[in-house]
Design a protein around this nucleic acid. Structure first.
Lengths: 208, 208
DNA sequence: CGAGTAGCTGAGTAATTGCTCATAATTATG
DNA sequence: CATAATTATGAGCAATTACTCAGCTACTCG
């Protein structure tokens, strides 16, 4: 889509199998190290050590630390998007409310799986332009997906499907943010209920 | 409210006027430097230089870099909260929708005033436990304020005022986040309209 | 005025960290 | 087996940066 420079261009294109293995090991190790130490203390040397490779090898596949983080972020968003889309092929619930609940729950479970890493990726790490681009790309994909759903569903009365889809997507992220940010145990179920109720009433409400 | 250790305890309590002036100059300079250079490149030495004082003086008032950031954040949230509350004393609009629009607009204008700094404070800077505490404190205050409004307004039909207030507050922050994150020019007015519509329908909708 | 206190200075330090590069090991190729 | 291509190594460099401290200046007040 974007015509910018190739994203995440590694210094060396893998030609042998072990190269691909090393790449994967780096990513896995980076996920663990970032989760354990946070962004700042998640040094490249530590990542290499955890991956069982030398620091030099890491820099053969990623030009710098942020490139590792960027690919990690992309991989995570990829998984999240796949989770959401997985419902498409199977049968979706009838009522709009249930569909929305499904979507909201997907966001929650995505976060629950890797809370520490999530915190690093979306809270601690500095937002480089590259990261922004990646996040925007995936958000746009999510919005498109939801927009498609809204257009097909008869209960939806809102006219501006585009803005509505954007609201839905961002609101789901909102819930996740609550989970991350709240210091005291929040009642997730209640919040989820109210959020779904809010979205449903908004979408099924008529007029402009 | 919190019974934790004194927040932002400076190394030296100001006793003379110039000390207070220096404190203020540091904060102002920090705001400019962070806005211009971002968090990571916003070094303490640069801040001191911009403030026209020596680095040593800075560390007489703030134990470390993050303390500067924390106080800056607190000051900003303070201003934002004051902006929201300022409508209380004056007369508020009648309709719930207009009240909500007022609140949402306050969030927008707060951001529009210092977009760069906002980006640093809420996007780039690492979330230390201290920062989290401060943010939570102010969010709680905002929620309390909105909760009070909801309880007094006859149009509001939602039962759980607490959760509803939380939804309203976080949603307003959501809009700001959109303004910050979107790379392409977003139609703010349209988004604002839809957001206000969503909140209004939710709050005035009956039942559980 | 002068002694005590508060505030200011800024070169320097200690520590960290992202990253390079010369070299070696491994794998593919003919 | 020989040659070339690919991948791995890791000590160490260069640069950055938060922060200290010993000494200085400015202010206050009897």
């Amino acid at each position: 889509m974007t015509s910018g420079p190739r994203r995440l261009q590694p210094r060396k294109q893998p030609k042998q199998v072990r190269a691909e293995l090393t790449r994967q090991r780096i990513l896995t190790a980076a996920a663990e190290v970032f989760a354990d130490y946070g962004y700042a203390a998640g040094t490249t040397n530590r990542i290499a050590e955890r991956a069982g490779i030398s620091i030099g090898s890491l820099y053969q596949y990623y030009p710098n630390k942020d490139a590792v983080l960027a690919e990690l972020t992309a991989a995570h968003l990829d998984a999240g998007l796949a989770l959401v889309r997985s419902h498409q092929d199977g049968e979706l619930p009838e009522s709009l409310e249930d569909i929305l609940r499904l979507f909201v729950r997907a966001a929650i479970s995505d976060h629950r799986g890797h809370p520490q890493l999530h915190r690093v990726l979306f809270e601690q790490a500095p937002r480089t332009p590259q990261i922004f681009e990646i996040m925007y790309e995936y958000e746009a994909a999510s919005v498109d997906f939801i927009k498609g759903l809204l257009e097909r569903h008869p209960e939806v009365k809102v006219e501006d499907k585009q803005t509505a889809a954007r609201l839905v997507v961002t609101s789901a992220g909102l819930l996740v943010h609550q989970l991350v940010a709240e210091p005291n145990p929040i009642d997730v179920d209640r919040f989820e209920n109210e959020l779904v109720a809010m979205l449903t009433r908004y979408l099924t409400g008529g007029g402009s």
